[in-house]
Design a protein around this nucleic acid. Structure first.
Lengths: 237, 237
DNA sequence: ACCTGAACACCGTTCAAGT
DNA sequence: ACCTGAACACCGTTCAAGT
């Protein structure tokens, strides 16, 4: 969808000079590459090769790699649809955060870029989307800050990774690997060894929605408490 | 502390051949470099230069960079002290997680390495330390899994970064940067612009303990609910 | 205006060769 | 046993030169 928009935009602006390489073409190609292998795998030389130009030519259109990635990640984050506004805010927030996290996992290196460049288009879009839901839910002032912070600290560990996992469900504690390791140091990880049978091979994906529900429930209880206090205050005078 | 332990270990094993470079010497030097600039800044060539050898010499002592970093990060994570066991488990967990997070922030790139190598000594130490507290608190089986998962999803966003921030308190939403950006696209981030005055310049560090308390409170309520159910079940027959 | 080519200062890693 | 040196296949970026 985002790619199609880019293609038509470049075509209309380059109507007079059809064979000229436009910045939007570079972004579109980079976006396609990112979809396949994530951000971390992108290099100026690889992008240039895909475009059949030299790497240094890219520097004519963009000041540096960050500027190009800023544009690309902006498109990625803007492609995340906003959940239906008529849903209860808890469900709306749940859907939004799951979609955002899915996107961060689909593009390894994206989360790191957004944190590194907190003023990038993608980072602002992430914030804006969450603020829309929180505001409609009734969060204001200090509570809004707190809610935004709480959601900022809710990060899928695999969003830290630079490679896309080959299997769908990534086990947090992989019995094989741990067993090999712990055999080398049997008295270093007593609890881990003892609890391994009940912990082994559980995946992040299984517990993501559960953990998220916990976070949202916490936010909801904050909001209710604030609402009660506000009503009491306004009723007194 | 960890460095002193390494030094003496290498001295005792190399008593017969005092001028020989030991793997522990390499680890000690790498550890010192990591303390100054984080993991992300370490390269085989830089480590070798500090040791006054060639980069390729390192490959005689370690199979690859990951093996060296595995050892180094193991020492880093093992240097985190376990909180006093006599404390209430909620306080114990709070102290542990704050210390762990402080360590991850002190060594940019460490969090990413631990996620990338979930069977590394450092990653296992992280898990072991948390399991010790959760087990003593009374978490078992599915609840233990859930608690561990919940804590896994609690990640400081700046742990994703590769550079240590120069200033102590890093603002999540920096008024200057955002204002510059949003002026270029005034109708793209309506909520962000509207709420900027009340959101601006608040730091992650201010909200970290608050967010953590929320997570721990959630875990505690889980534990209480489970305890009640178990007592009811055992009282019935 | 738009792009190339050479160059610089980096990476991780392999491998034959030296002592 | 322990290390060097050359080499390979990469990086991001600058800058003079071409058309």
């Amino acid at each position: 969808v985002a790619q199609a928009k880019l293609k038509s935009a470049s075509r209309s602006t380059s109507a007079r000079r059809p064979n000229t390489l436009e910045p939007d073409d570079i972004i579109a190609v980079t976006l396609a590459m990112a979809r396949k292998g994530g951000l971390a795998q992108l290099s100026m030389r690889r992008i240039a090769a895909e475009l059949q130009i030299t790497a240094t030519a890219l520097y004519y259109h963009f000041h540096d790699k960050n500027e190009l990635l800023d544009r690309v990640t902006g498109h990625i984050m803007e492609a995340i649809p906003n959940p239906d506004q008529r849903l209860p805010w808890t469900e709306r927030l749940r859907q939004l955060v799951l979609l955002q996290m899915q996107t961060l996992l689909a593009y390894p290196g994206l989360a790191r870029f957004l944190v590194h460049r907190r003023d990038s288009a993608g980072a602002l879009r992430w914030t804006e989307a969450i603020l829309e839901v929180l505001y409609d839910a009734g969060f204001r002032g200090a509570n809004l800050k707190r809610a935004l912070a709480t959601l900022s600290f809710f990060v899928h560990p695999l969003a830290l990774a630079d490679e896309r996992p080959r299997s769908g469900a990534v086990p947090m504690i992989q019995r094989q690997l741990i067993t090999r390791r712990t055999k080398l140091a049997p008295n270093k990880y007593p609890r881990l060894i003892e609890l391994l049978p009940e912990l082994a091979d559980y995946s992040y994906d299984d517990y993501l929605p559960i953990a998220l529900d916990g976070v949202i429930a916490g936010l909801a209880s904050e909001l209710v408490r604030v609402g009660r206090t506000a009503r009491r205050k306004s009723a007194r005078p």
